[in-house]
Amino acid sequence: MNRSNKTVIGTFLTPAVVLLMAFMILPFVMAFVLSFTNSRLIPGPRGTQYIGLTNYQKLVEDNMFWRGLKHNFYFVIIVVPIQTSLALLLAILVNQKLKFSKFFRTFYFIPTVTAMVAVAVVWSFLYHPNGLINSFLTFITGGVWGGVDFLNTTRWAFPAIMAMSIWQGVGFQMLIFLAGLQDIPSSYYEAADIDGANSWEKFKYITLPQLKNTTTFVVISTTILAFRLFTQILVMTNGGPQGSTYTVMLHIYKMAYQRLNIGYGSALTVVFFIIILIISLLQRYLLGEQREVA
């Protein structure tokens, strides 16, 4: 590598590195440092003090944090498999050379590009006791369905948010799967046709193995997104009823911006980051992503 090459690399790298430092690394380092202090958004007369591990001790005893974490796991365990399989199914559907497949591709993607706040507000209306979903269920069951206040009953609120989140997010994963599908050389399928393989065998022995890297990416990114569950909760239930939809992100938001307790919020962020990091690494190890380029 000669000198001018280094200059070129440096020139191209600088903007990215600067932005990454300013908006990713630095805030994280600050959060780490602040987590050992009693920093407040509006500091008190005694200013910010170093308080050692107090925030982390507080966290261990914080019931709401553990409850939120439990809900996060629950959400991930239910949503990730359903959303991933649904996305794959949709991708295969819109990848067929059918009429209107381009229309459906766009159509499934619309919820993903719509702002989550707007989607959440609309779904709050849909889920209302007199809303569209209840009216529809009452109509098709001929009045047997009595109407459920989805977002205000502890049993239904979280499943309702899960369903809405899957609907909203599935388009994005579909798009990634679609790209993966179109990368599979058609010669594989042609060879399989000659060997007399049926559609299921082709799916099982060609499509799935070829999509392995894509699947790994989709599962990990969906998991991370699922852990970050926040906007729809804040808009639709604010963690209620009776804390049944409380999540860690909501807890961090409430501690840092409602109670102004930045120090404790930072400690929560650090712990949550480590948890997600471990899970992502574990997933990667288990799914065994292959790095070599085909």
Binding site: T154, G239, G240, P241, Q242, G243, R259, L260
Partner: peptide, 20 residues
């Protein structure tokens, strides 16, 4: 100065109490 916490704790409690 603790008012932000007082109000947020009361709101949570009332919300849950209203919901049974």
């Amino acid at each position: 100065p603790a008012y932000p916490t007082i109000t947020s704790a009361f709101q949570t409690a009332m919300d849950n109490i209203i919901n049974g």
